[in-house]
Design a protein around this nucleic acid. Sequence first.
DNA 1: ATACAGTTTAACCAAATGGTTAACAAAACT
DNA 2: AGTTTTGTTAACCATTTGGTTAAACTGTAT
Lengths: 205, 205
Amino acid sequence: MVKKAKDTGTEEKILAAARKVFTTKGMAGARMQDIADEAGMNKALLHYYFRDKDKLFETVFLAEAQKFFPTINAIFASEQPLFEKIETFVSEYIDEMVENPYLPWFVLNEINRDPDQFMYKIWGKDNLPKPGKLLEQIETEIKAGRIRPISPVHLLMNMISMTIFPFVGKPMFVRNLRLSDKQFREIMEQRKKEIPSFIINAIRK
Amino acid sequence: MVKKAKDTGTEEKILAAARKVFTTKGMAGARMQDIADEAGMNKALLHYYFRDKDKLFETVFLAEAQKFFPTINAIFASEQPLFEKIETFVSEYIDEMVENPYLPWFVLNEINRDPDQFMYKIWGKDNLPKPGKLLEQIETEIKAGRIRPISPVHLLMNMISMTIFPFVGKPMFVRNLRLSDKQFREIMEQRKKEIPSFIINAIRK
DNA sequence: ATACAGTTTAACCAAATGGTTAACAAAACT
DNA sequence: AGTTTTGTTAACCATTTGGTTAAACTGTAT
């Protein structure tokens, strides 16, 4: 009853290939044959390890989605003061996306395909991300007169938007601002400081 | 040689149906039969009016993309002072997207599928959107000491991100913040004021 | 009425695609 | 060794899907 002995890691090869194909072409556009080719093996093997296309996709997708919503709850719920929390959030997200630039597009695509089904898979029924604490913190700061009055929802949206959107719209930005890939990465690196400072300037009294 | 006489507007029906199906399922996920069903007619008619799937898609796509990049160049190049220009941009874009919420996702999806091909189709070879003037304006304001020093590229990215991303990530926001469709629309309406004021607070000295 | 062009449909076709199967190879086990 | 279990492949199958065709229908001009 030992686990598969030798094994060059066929299963891993499949997952890697599937990830590549699914993330670039999406579920509908991906072909099982493409994945088999990419993995350098027979198509039937995909079915041997992962029953069918749906199952394979779901496996890949869940693994990727975990990256996209990483320690989000931990950050939201932590005891850090507001400004620090913003810095942590922005910085960690950008780091993740610099390494996997296709991620936001892939995940958002799925969310759009079937929002309810999706959210349910990621967070279980009740493990929803709770921005509640963060929203409270914002209100507290406003009442204490330390930051300008702003609807917490808008602040949250602004932060998330500025952090994630450049990656979703990367081809657009790269093309229209005539950026090289290296330049783009540098700019994203800068944004880890730039966004928090932008936000803080906007709200600090 | 009169134009097609009668005509209940078959061509328009096809386009409307195709738009609906393509924008919700994407090019790869859309089925010609779906479109025919949606339009209430025989599949062959689609080919009669628009040779093949690619042509039909391109027709729909170009029409939609025009909405997404509407008067963008006019705004960028106008003589309005910086702060007003920001207000105009945000406000016009949000108006457009409130009416066609699927638009950003659809267009960005295509850009990702084939960035070069796409950009080429939208703006011709040279009709690229020129953020140059806007970027200059920003630099002028900085030199004049009226706004804090900030890289124009970041400012541009921030503005575009805050404006567009909430629509791309709508299902995510709606779900996690537990918003009704009506509430979402109200929030977007608020953002027409909120975003410019947020930006101005962030950069004004 | 008849002819005729443009329009619409049902039936059909070939290629693509997800999935299966039966045979074969390689370990693992006795 | 031989036998059983696991991994891998080529060939195959059924369905889906984009696209075609030939016939039928519609209106208009002759």
